[in-house]
Amino acid sequence: MKTRHIAMIGAAAAAALYLCVNFETTEEHYAAKENEKNTVGSVYLSVDCKTFLNTDKAKSYIDKGVIPSDGEIIKKTAYNISEGDSAFTVLKTAVDKNRIIIDYDNVSGKSVYVKGISSVYEYDGGDLSGWMYSVNGEFPTVASSDYYLSDGDVVAWVYSCNLGKDVGDTF
C-alpha cells in the first residue's frame, strides 16, 4: 500500500517535471532563437552599466571579463521586431545573440521584472540600484514586457545606482 503511494507520487512528480520544465543545454538555448517570424520593422537596442563602474565591485567584474571595461554590455545595434514584440523580448533576443545571461522574474506570467543582466544584479550598486529601460529617451512607467515597440524605436537598458536619477530619468 505504502510503496504504491510513493510510486504514484513519484510518477506524478516526474510527469509534472516533464510537462512544465524545459531543459536546454547552453548550445540549444542560444541556437533555438534563430527562426525569425515576419518582421514589421527594426529597433535599436543598447545595454550599458556605466554607473556600475564607479562601485567597489566593478574592478573584479571587469578583471573576470564579466562586463567590458567601458560598461557597454551591448553596443547600439539594430534588431528586427515582429508583431507584439516588447522592450523585454527585444532584450531577450539581443542577449541570446550576444550570449549574455540575464535573470528575470516572471511570476505572474505577464509582467516581467529584469533582475540582472550579465551578472550585474539589482542592489549590486547600492540599495537604490537596478536595471531600467528607456524608449526614445523617455523612461516608461510600465513593465518592459508590457511596452510594445514600433518601427524605429531606440531602446536603452541602463543600470542605475540611484533610482534612475543618475541615468537621466526625471520623475
Binding site: N22, F23, E24, T26, E28, H29, D103, Y104, S119, Y121
Partner: peptide, 15 residues
C-alpha cells in the same frame, strides 16, 4: 537562484 557566470544548462529559459 540564477546568479553566477558558469552556466551548466538552461531551465525554462533561465540559467
Amino acid at each position: 537562484s540564477h546568479t553566477g557566470v558558469t552556466v551548466l544548462f538552461f531551465m525554462n529559459g533561465l540559467p
